[in-house]
């Protein structure tokens, strides 16, 4: 059979709707079909918009006080003037929630960027070189992994003082080993793949194999983890603030701290605990759902 005949018969096997494009587009198409992704994306978008445009959205400044309206133990609930009521210091709850999004996003993004950058660098080092470099890097990472995040945060706070910076550093440090291990494992698997071997057999230099083939194909789980880590960072930031390890400045509207502050007034104004709690849950859920959907969309096993 001639080549021309092959061409004629086999070319029809690629159906037109499949021939749309590369992997990214493929994943995007699947994301668009997933209800999980849509809900997650809506929540995340909302969260980011609120954080970015907080000054425009919030009806009041976060520290605008109406001390005249509160008495100890009695805080006005939702009204047309203050949609979510006033907090223990007579500040507008809604405005503080809205400004709080900024801090959550800030802490999440900065700590994630920091943690992921260091983690990816370590993982890349281990994954690219293997051998003793890998062993050394991974032992360091194991040590980091063995320190509980809470203990670490207390340590950092003791060292640098209670501040948002301490919280961000603590969360970043917790993220480092996660990213390092993830990228390293993914790269080692990809390094053993047939296409990496094929590139070696072509004589492609090792640095190029690692940077052009292995690394890009190892990033999917890292991207997914990044999304999930944002969610974790928000929870951790709230948790640390709740435990009093966050910023010492009471004027900063941090969701975790707002939650902690309601402890004494839980009986009289339970709604004040609900709002920051809800804000944490919704933002965290948004990132989780998006992360899960991303994981599914990027999974090569589900690709067809």
């Amino acid at each position: 059979m001639s080549v021309a005949q092959f061409e004629a018969v086999e070319s029809s096997a690629v159906s037109p709707q499949e021939a749309a494009g590369g992997l990214g587009r493929d994943a995007l198409r699947r994301l668009r079909r997933s209800p999980t992704a849509i809900v997650g994306a809506v929540l995340v978008t909302l969260f980011v918009l609120v954080a970015v445009f907080a000054p425009l959205l919030a009806p009041y400044e976060p520290n605008f006080q109406r001390l005249d309206l509160i008495r100890p133990g009695v805080y006005p609930g939702p009204s047309s003037e203050f949609l979510l009521g006033l907090d223990q210091l007579g500040r507008d709850e809604l405005s503080r929630i809205i400004y709080g999004a900024r801090y959550s996003l800030l802490i999440g993004v900065v700590s994630l960027t920091l943690g992921a950058a260091v983690g990816i660098a370590l993982g890349l080092l281990a994954g690219a070189f293997g051998g003793w470099v890998d062993s050394l890097v991974m032992r360091i990472v194991d040590v980091m992994l063995a320190i509980p995040s809470l203990l670490l945060a207390i340590g950092v706070a003791a060292l640098l003082g209670r501040s948002i910076t301490s919280v961000m550093i603590a969360i970043a440090v917790v993220n480092v080993p996660i990213f390092a291990r993830l990228l390293r494992g993914s790269m080692l698997a990809q390094r053993r793949s047939d296409y990496a071997l094929a590139a070696r057999s072509l004589g492609v230099p090792r640095s190029r194999i690692v940077l052009q083939h292995v690394l890009p194909n190892s990033l999917s789980p890292v991207i997914v983890q990044g999304t999930l880590a944002l969610a974790t960072a928000i929870i951790e930031a709230a948790g640390l603030a709740y435990l009093g390890l966050g910023s010492a400045d009471p004027s900063i509207p941090e969701w975790g701290r707002m939650l902690a502050d309601t402890q004494n007034s839980l009986a009289t104004a339970p709604l004040l605990a609900l709002w920051p709690g809800l804000a944490i849950v919704l933002s965290v859920m948004g990132f989780y759902l998006l992360g899960e959907a991303l994981r599914e969309a990027l999974d090569p096993k589900l690709r067809r």
Binding site: M1, Q5, V9
Partner: peptide, 21 residues
């Protein structure tokens, strides 16, 4: 060889599924 690939089929309702190959 049988030309084409197993994915080159015709729905049975429209004729023989093997006919494209």
């Amino acid at each position: 060889p049988i030309p084409g690939s197993p994915s080159d089929t015709l729905p049975w309702a429209q004729g023989c599924a093997f006919s494209p190959r």
